[in-house]
Simulated assay, not measured.
Amino acid sequence: MYIYESHIQDLLNIGRAIIVPIEIGDQFGRFVEGLPWGANGSGLNWARIDGLRKELPSSSGVILSEWLSGTNINNDSYVVFWFSFGEPCIACETQFAMYNVDHAFWKAPGRRYLFGLNIRDGEFIPEYSHFAEYDGANELIFCVAGYRG
């Protein structure tokens, strides 16, 4: 399980990440399965989803913050890093998460997905339509307006 990797455990131990229940992650997985996929299966078909692309390593903090303001996930308190079905996810505060996407997904091969989350009165309120795809190298693509199908 990815959350037992030492770099994820470090984030949990210093209070920069929290564990999100498997059920929330599995619901997101089903949501992602229902999105339009590329013909070769190498990720989502962004020609059919309104997306905003950003190369992470070249982004300064100010540029990244300005860019993030154009996405729905900017309105969410947390970003959830989804690893796979049947596994818990981790969530980090949105700004911290955006600066640590590559770190969070380290050792998780292939395209990775994340989504927004709010916590009110101790209840997790996932925002599945506030999602993004990470290519595992340096490109992050956010759904701009949410996707309803």
Rank of each mutant, 00 (worst) to 15 (best):
G41V: 11
I18S: 07
T94R: 06
E23Y: 09
G116F: 02
A108H: 15
E5L: 14
E55A: 10
I22M: 12
P109D: 15
R16K: 12
R53G: 07
Q27N: 14
Y128C: 12
G41K: 05
A39S: 13
N100D: 09
N72H: 12
L117H: 07
A47I: 13
L114P: 01
G34A: 11
Y113N: 03
L52V: 02
V101Q: 07
K107A: 12
L11T: 05
Y128N: 11
R48Y: 04
G110S: 11
K54P: 03
F96S: 10
N75M: 08
S69K: 07
C143S: 11
P109Q: 13
N45M: 08
F96G: 03
R112L: 12
F85W: 12
E123I: 15
S77K: 05
G43R: 02
R48A: 08
Q27T: 15
E139C: 11
G122H: 12
A39C: 08
F85P: 09
A104L: 04
V80D: 00
G149A: 09
Y147A: 06
F85G: 12
P21V: 09
A39E: 10
P88S: 10
A132T: 08
D135R: 00
G43V: 00
W37R: 08
I8G: 02
E133A: 03
G29S: 06
S84Q: 10
A104N: 05
A97S: 03
G136M: 12
Y113D: 00
Q9K: 13
I14W: 12
N45T: 13
V79T: 06
F105N: 06
M98V: 01
R112E: 14
F131H: 13
N74K: 01
E33C: 14
K54E: 09
D76Q: 05
S77D: 04
L68E: 02
G41F: 06
E66G: 13
Y2H: 02
I125C: 05
Q27H: 14
P126W: 10
A97M: 01
F142E: 08
Y113T: 05
F83W: 05
W67H: 03
S6A: 15
G41W: 03
Y128H: 09
R30V: 11
S65G: 07
I14G: 01
V79A: 07
E66Q: 15
Y128T: 13
G25Q: 12
N75Y: 11
D26L: 08
W106R: 15
G70Q: 08
Q27S: 15
D50W: 07
E93N: 13
E5I: 14
E133P: 04
